[in-house]
Amino acid sequence: MNTSENVGTKKSGKLGKILSWIVVILLIGVSGYVYYKYYFVFGEGVKSGYLNYAVKKGNLFKTYEGKLIQEGFGNSKKGPGISSNEFEFSVENDSIFRLLELNSGKYFDLHYKEYHGVLPWRGNTRYIVDQVIHMQ
């Protein structure tokens, strides 16, 4: 066997190992970023207010969207005075959406999860309501 062939095979074997490790590290990095951005729950909480609307909308992905009007004092964008706070959210669960849709205008306590990013099939907002705690 020729020694120059051996050296060439060893070099290409090392290069292949290095490239495969780089690909593995990149895949792990991209997977970690995607998980953190779109699936990691950044925050959870409860918002209370009057349900302004609950709609199903979207061009490609039909998602459930809603808005709560929260009472209280706030900074009005048009100058000093009283304004309401709005909480826009998305809903993944059909049964929760039906409950909201049938009770528009009522006072709700909604449990939500907050994500860093928005997925088009999950909704138009980073806030996903996953539970109705109380309704009046």
Rank of each mutant, 00 (worst) to 15 (best):
H116K: 15
S76L: 00
K57P: 03
A54C: 02
Q136R: 08
Y112E: 08
L100F: 01
K56L: 05
G105V: 05
L26F: 03
Y112T: 14
L60W: 03
V30D: 07
K14I: 09
V7G: 07
I18Q: 10
N52T: 12
G72P: 04
N103W: 00
K67H: 09
G123L: 01
N85W: 00
N75G: 11
Y50E: 15
S12P: 02
Y107D: 14
S4R: 06
S12V: 13
M1L: 05
S12A: 09
F89K: 06
I25V: 15
N52H: 07
L68A: 08
L99E: 13
G74W: 01
F108W: 01
P120G: 08
Y39V: 12
H116E: 14
V7F: 01
K78P: 03
S83E: 11
K78T: 14
V118Q: 09
F97T: 11
S31D: 07
Y112F: 08
G74E: 02
Y35R: 09
V46N: 13
R98N: 15
T3S: 10
V132L: 04
S84G: 08
Y33C: 07
F40H: 15
K47H: 10
Q136P: 04
Y33Q: 10
V132I: 13
L19V: 11
E65C: 04
K37A: 11
V132C: 03
L27D: 02
F73C: 13
V24N: 03
S12N: 14
S76Q: 02
E101A: 07
I82D: 14
N59Y: 02
N2P: 12
R122H: 09
V30G: 07
D109Q: 05
E65P: 07
K56G: 14
G29P: 02
G81T: 08
